[in-house]
């Protein structure tokens, strides 16, 4: 069980690192998917090894998959808009507003 949680933690950390350092928006989206996948592994592992019986964890992970897909659709649509406006999807250039 510890192995699963460790893998999930590593995946989550990789995703976190990717979100914070990636320059390309598509790269950020992929890193976000990594984070969601880490959460899903966590839920399924906890369900299987700690709380067998009720399938709450697996149910939750199904919901996460669905919602993450919906989120990715909206995200990619906005990325498309970005490309139309800037001809570029690197977040170095997309920074009109500053405090």
């Amino acid at each position: 069980m510890v192995a699963y949680i460790a893998v999930a933690a590593v995946l989550f950390a990789l995703g976190l690192f990717g979100v914070l350092t990636r320059r390309n928006i598509i790269g950020i989206l992929m890193s976000l998917e990594l984070m969601f996948n880490a959460v899903i592994i966590n839920f399924v592992a906890f369900n299987k090894f700690v709380w067998p019986g009720e399938m709450i964890g697996q149910l939750f992970s199904l919901f996460i998959i669905v919602v993450a897909a919906a989120e990715a659709v909206v995200g990619l649509a906005i990325v498309l808009l970005l490309y139309r406006n800037w001809q570029d999807i690197s977040n170095d250039n997309i920074n009109v507003m500053k405090w």
Partner: peptide
Amino acid sequence: SAMLLYGFSFLYG
């Protein structure tokens, strides 16, 4: 929401 879910997964665990 990814951060939130990671926390939720431990609460569930």
